[in-house]
Design a protein around this nucleic acid. Structure first.
Lengths: 167, 167
DNA sequence: TTTTTATTTCAATATTTTTTGAAAGTTTAA
DNA sequence: TTAAACTTTCAAAAAATATTGAAATAAAAA
């Protein structure tokens, strides 16, 4: 496998993986491209390399910046904007975990809490609803703690310790 | 909030959360419904409660069974098939983690490994590709270990210990 | 066997999501 | 100013995905 094959394979894998996790293909591919690019890229560069339209590129770059994993850069003397990705994968994971927690997990936890606190009326269906949503609430809360705290902690203690602990 | 409101809220939340994680709405809603139902439900029951077609119900029930989180049950003397969900949320999480690992994470890890093993040619772009895919490979491998081993281990040691460790 | 009850399949349809591209907007340079 | 370089917006089009429903299949009862 040569460089170009490897690069394309990586970008397309990352792209289809993205859709599987609720991030669209273009967004995931732009991110992949920036992640492995040693130099910042302009919108033109990205459009050309991924064969996507200007509008698409603009919108998805914006979203990546909203996620806090892609940044604008200006080259002196140049009007054009350039973009780079967060290059430290540990920090990348931390940022993604933080955002997914904020956008999905925390709202869900809130709803599970509301639902599990309805009034007990003695019927089995109410009992079951309360029981299951309480259990999900506890699990989601634990997951939230893990996601926002474990990931991105210094690699050399929690993660490594944990993995040793379990192997 | 009364029972019906709470139930609907739970089902629709679970449904829209599903799409965000690569599981379609109907599938997630069927699962939610079964999860809080004290009794097994027939296809008719599900169709009626969620207002979805027979074909849709059949296909998504099949997928849920493929995921190993919904089971067929037969009531004696009855021809109809009934369905239940895995009720233990810990076991549910373990099963989902296992399947996602098998379907997504492991194939990705394999590709990251292939890509990160291309021949070093001294150029900065090749260096960067190798460096980043190696880092992602390591992270994905760690995540895979965590997902398949930590989750679903007896609640009262790993998870609790971990959470205490980090708080 | 034939009929009845229930489930599955899949082409057609509907819905949702993504992408495009051109017009409008913005910013710097002339 | 006006022009040039570049970016954003958004309605329309395209693509991807989910859903329907009726015909085919299966399995049990009459």
């Amino acid at each position: 496998m040569n460089y170009d094959e490897a690069k394309n394979k990586f970008i397309s894998t990352w792209g289809s993986l993205g859709t599987l996790w609720g991030i669209n293909k273009a967004m995931a591919q732009i991110h992949a491209l920036l992640l492995i690019s040693p130099e910042p890229l302009s919108m033109e560069d990205i459009m050309e390399q991924l064969q996507i339209s200007r509008g698409n590129t603009s919108m998805n770059l914006r979203q990546l910046m909203d996620w806090g994993i892609v940044f604008k850069e200006n080259k002196m003397g140049e009007r054009k904007e350039y973009f780079t990705s967060e290059k430290d994968v540990q920090e990348l994971a931390r940022q993604i975990a933080k955002e997914r927690s904020r956008r999905e997990l925390q709202p869900t936890i809130k709803i599970l809490n509301d639902v599990s606190n309805i009034e007990e009326d003695g019927t089995s269906k109410t009992k079951e609803l309360i029981k299951q949503t309480k259990a999900l609430h506890e699990m989601a809360s634990n997951l939230d703690i893990m996601m926002t705290k474990v990931v991105g902690q210094d690699q050399n203690w929690v993660t490594k310790a944990l993995i040793k602990l379990i192997k």
